[in-house]
């Protein structure tokens, strides 16, 4: 593959990732975006005043941080389903390019630990899939702001994976 082809492929995949999150109204409402390095995603929660939960501190709403963690976990799981199809190419890849994405994994439960209040600025999150089962996946996800080693919150959850054939 030439350098130009590789670059085109990367752009196509990045555009697909943008489309995946833009297809969900609530992700647009919170203004969460994803960037990727290969198959690893990093979520970015773009700050706006409407995300504030405590105007006195001021701090992000705890629910917004939780939702951001949940979205990051679900998007990573969905991307993990998409990734092998992209690599395989053919009809599976073509369907994805038409915007036919797998269904979002359903959250069974989510436990969130809050370490410090979220400041009025962008936040980032990354998920680690601890166990990717056929039916259930267990995911750990962490959010931070200025410093990666000072997370503002972490969560772990179980997700029901969508069946094959959409």
């Amino acid at each position: 593959m030439s350098a130009v082809e590789a670059q085109t492929r990367k752009k196509k995949r990045d555009a697909m990732l943008d489309e995946l999150s833009a297809s969900i109204p609530y992700i647009r409402f919170l203004d969460v975006e994803f960037t990727r390095m290969g198959d690893e995603l990093t979520g970015r929660l773009n700050y706006s005043e409407k995300l504030i939960g405590n105007p006195m501190i001021p701090a992000l709403h705890g629910g917004v941080v939780s939702a951001f963690l949940e979205i990051t976990a679900q998007t990573q799981l969905t991307w993990d389903l998409i990734w092998p199809k992209l690599e395989a190419g053919g009809e599976a890849e073509a369907a994805l390019l038409r915007g036919e994405f797998p269904r979002t994994p359903k959250t069974i439960n989510l436990t969130i630990d809050y370490f410090r209040s979220g400041r009025p600025r962008d936040a980032y999150a990354r998920a680690i899939v601890q166990k990717a089962g056929r039916r259930v996946a267990n995911v750990r996800v962490e959010a931070w702001q200025d410093s990666r080693d000072r997370p503002i919150a972490a969560a772990h959850g179980n997700f029901l994976m969508p069946g094959e054939g959409k």
Binding site: S23, I24, P25, Y26, I27, L30, G53, H61, G62, G63, V64, S66, A67, F68, E70, I71, R103, T104, T107, L110, I112
Partner: peptide, 20 residues
Amino acid sequence: VGNPETGVIHGGVVTTVLDN
């Protein structure tokens, strides 16, 4: 909405309201 096909609201909204 979290699922545009069904119109079901996102779990994050439910979490936010429960937290609040």
